[in-house]
Write a protein that binds this DNA or RNA. Structure first.
Lengths: 205, 205
DNA sequence: TACGTGTGTTACCGTTCAGTAACATGAATC
DNA sequence: GATTCATGTTACTGAACGGTAACACACGTA
């Protein structure tokens, strides 16, 4: 269980161009199902069927469900930082605006699709085996979030950047949590941009 | 599944005095195991064995695992509000102090035993069936938390008590989330009292 | 034509888990 | 002593799930 695959298929052309089509379909389907219904609720059979294939093809693409879960989290991680970078990019050199953009973006996302909370936290709750590699992805994600918020706070000129950074980290976490535990349309997340603005005022003189 | 039991045993003495001893042992054990390892990870057999009994005795006390889960959450709810009331009681009439006491208390708890996040949120992640009664307990808990923080903010004299209340709600949620996703000793939660103090200063003139 | 490769299909295995049936025991009560 | 009631014990059912074996087919390429 949980050993590195190193490619079951090794040197064929389709693999270099775009991996396998079936594999992609399975992976995309799994990501949706895992986020919407949870990791443990979604079986291998269900994923394969929803992807229009079957369990055997699943196991030709992924050595185990655990490997798929790990890949699912890594993909979430990648997409998240891509979103983060794209969100702050238009305000280069203006850390306060970057921070505001992040929280407005999070609010916008919470209105659309992120109805099931934070994929990383959900994974943490569902996977309790301490040695499971998925947990390290989550730890890394949380640590990186904190680091980035503290960095932004420092760039914004806060006297206590670590404290402001942690405040932003906590608000962001709280937002993610809200989206799963409140009927989404008017949870506390709607006030988070206002709150963050106030925090910035308070901590930047 | 999930029907009201209305007491399998009805009129014996031991039931009126202290319910059944076995039942209590099972329930206490289940609460610990559910919180530590998650609801889905802990089977009925494991609970019964850890409580020093067996599955049959379990099913004589609880009509189903789902009923036990529901009771587990209600117990968490009861204990939480008991803690809340006890925490703010010494500062009656001083809402600012009450708020600070809550967050200092949360920090103290996070240092001790709450290493596995928020029991309600965890349940929300593990139980995805929308019709499951456990979800309503969580919704109620979150709504009540928000209501209480907004009330405290109002009593403290905030111009925008709903916004300050939501800020406190978000920080508290973020704290709970931190305890599951950071190596606990120095997550952002350690700065939460400072942050809350700053928030109070900012919102109360 | 022959072959390799990716995929579909069916039928399995072994395990875990919620829940039940039937019976045994031991202590208190009448 | 007979009854009652809570509890223990063993064995079972049926379903879900992760994972595998064996075989069939279709298609492109040499």
């Amino acid at each position: 269980m949980m050993n590195k695959p190193e490619a079951t298929v090794s040197g064929n052309k389709s693999c270099e161009v775009g991996k396998s089509k079936v594999r992609d379909r399975i992976f995309d389907t799994a990501c949706e199902l895992f986020y919407e219904h949870g990791i443990r609720c979604v079986g291998v059979d269900a994923i394969a069927n929803a992807a229009g294939t079957n369990k055997m093809s699943f196991y030709r693409s992924f050595p185990s469900k655990d490997d798929l879960v790990l890949e699912y989290l890594r993909e979430h991680e990648r997409a998240h930082w891509e979103w983060w970078d794209a969100t702050i990019a238009p305000h280069h050199g203006a850390p306060e605006k970057q921070i505001m953009a992040l929280f407005e973006g999070q609010l916008a996302k919470s209105r659309k699709k992120d109805k099931h909370g934070c994929a990383f936290l959900n994974a943490m709750v569902e996977i309790r085996e301490t040695e499971h590699p998925a947990r390290e992805v989550v730890y890394a994600y949380k640590a990186e979030t904190r680091r980035r918020f503290r960095k932004l706070a420092k760039e914004a000129g806060a006297q206590t950047p670590d404290v402001l950074g942690d405040a932003l980290t906590l608000i962001a976490s709280g937002n993610a949590m809200s989206s799963i535990s409140f009927s989404c349309q008017d949870g506390p997340v709607v006030n988070s941009p206002k709150i963050v603005k106030k925090l910035l005022e308070a901590y930047l003189q």
